[in-house]
């Protein structure tokens, strides 16, 4: 799926309390057979991407982030947190609709 494509309305899954994710970091979840990395930005919003870097399988949840991107810890490939678009020439990763509801992280899996 490429940037700008509308996300299909998916099935919502409650992943756990947002307090599990320290500010500015990511944590990974296994949900509906997928590995999903959820990032909590410093402003409190959350973003969700596939947890596995398409380059060499690096764990994106272990990457460093800012308000826009995550940097894979293995070879520094850069992915946009909002769209999953790769800025360094690799395949994109899937991005998922995610929100915090009553302190719980809720992700929508198509």
């Amino acid at each position: 799926m490429t940037a700008g494509t509308e996300r299909a309305v998916g099935v919502e899954h409650v992943l756990g309390p947002v307090s599990e994710i320290p500010a500015g970091e990511g944590r990974a979840y296994g949900v509906a057979g997928r590995q999903v990395a959820v990032f909590r930005l410093r402003d409190g919003t959350v973003r969700a991407l596939d947890a596995v870097c398409p380059h060499r399988g690096g764990p994106l949840a272990d990457g460093q982030i800012d308000a826009d991107v995550v940097v894979c810890p293995l070879h520094a490939h850069v992915f946009e947190l909002g769209t999953g678009v790769c800025r360094t020439g690799r395949s994109d990763v899937e991005s998922y609709a995610v929100r915090v509801e009553e302190g719980q992280v809720v992700v929508s899996i198509p």
């Binding site: 320290p22 970091e25 590995q35 947890a51 949840a61 272990d62």
Partner: peptide
């Protein structure tokens, strides 16, 4: 030092 510091980042691998 923080929650989930040593949690796996590839839960299904």
């Amino acid at each position: 030092a923080e929650p989930g510091q040593f949690r796996t980042a590839l839960p299904l691998t």
